[in-house]
Amino acid sequence: MAVTDVAKLRASNRQAGRKFGGSIGIFILLAMLGLFMVLPIYLTIVMSVKPVEELFVFPPKLYAVRPTLDNFRDMFRVLHQNRVPFSRYMFNSIFVTLAVTVLQCVFSSMAAFVLAKCKFPGSKLLNGIIVIALLYQSSVIYIMQYIVMAKLNMIDTYMALIFPAVASPMGLFLMRQSISQVPDSMIEAAKVDGAGLFRICWQIVIPNQKPALMTLIIFAFQGAWNIQAGSVVFREEYKTLPTVVSQAATSGLARAGVAMAAAVFMLVPPIVIFMLAQRQVIETMAHSGIKE
C-alpha cells in the first residue's frame, strides 16, 4: 500500500467530533466482548494440541503444558486409511469450493443488478420470491431436491455437490440490497453513453460493490467448503473433506482432541479467505468517493 493511501486511511478516521477518549472506551468494550467470543475457539485450538493425559486433569488448564501435534497426526493417519487417497478428497473439496464460489458470485451479481435496477414484467414477483425462498425452511426439501437430482441423473457426480449451491437466495439478496444504493443517475449516464446492460453491470456497478462482493465471497466460500456429500454422493471418489474429516473425528477415533484437531484443520481455509476479503473491504473506504 502506498504512503498516500495510509495517510488517506488515517484521515478517514478523523471524522466529525471524534474524542480520543471515546475511541479508547469503544476499544476496551470491544476487547472485552471479543475475549468472550474467542475463548471457545482459543480452547479448541489449545485442546487440539493437548496430549491425551492432559485432557482430563482437574482443574482444567487454559493452556497446554506439553503441546503436541499427536492429535493432528492421528487424524491424518485415519484419513490415510481410506481406500481413496487423501489427495483426492482434498482435490474434490477445492474443486467444488472454487466452482461454487465463482459461479455463485458471477450469477448472483448479475441477477442482483437486474433485480435491483431494472423494471421489467415479472421483476416485482421475482424480488418477492427471493425473500420468501430465504424464509422457507422445510425438512422435506432435501428429499425433493434428491428426487429432482435423481431425475436429472446427477446422483454420485460433482454436479450433485455443486449445482444446488450455485443459486443462493441469500447471496442474491445481499447483492441486491447493496446495488439498490447505487444512484440511478449513474446508470442512466452510462446508458446515454451507449453502454449495454451487461457492460454497465460489470464495468460500472460491480466494481463499485467491493464490500458486498467480498462479503458474498466469504459466505460462498464458507458454505461451499462445508458442503458434505450427505445423501447425494455415495461413491468414495466424490466425497469432500468435511465428510471424511467428520467421519474420522467421530467414528475413527472418538477422542475429544482429534475432534478439536479436525475443527481447527477445517477452519484454516475459511479464515484465510476471510482475511484476504476483509482487507479488500476495509480498503474500499479510502478509495470511494466517485459515487454521485
Partner: peptide, 23 residues
C-alpha cells in the same frame, strides 16, 4: 434483463423453486 438473470434463475428454479413447490 431476462438474459442476465437466466443463469441464476435456471439453477434457482431447478434446485429451489421446484423442490419447494413439491414439498
Amino acid at each position: 434483463c431476462y438474459g442476465m438473470i437466466a443463469p441464476f434463475m435456471v439453477f434457482f428454479i431447478i434446485f429451489t423453486i421446484v423442490p419447494v413447490l413439491m414439498s
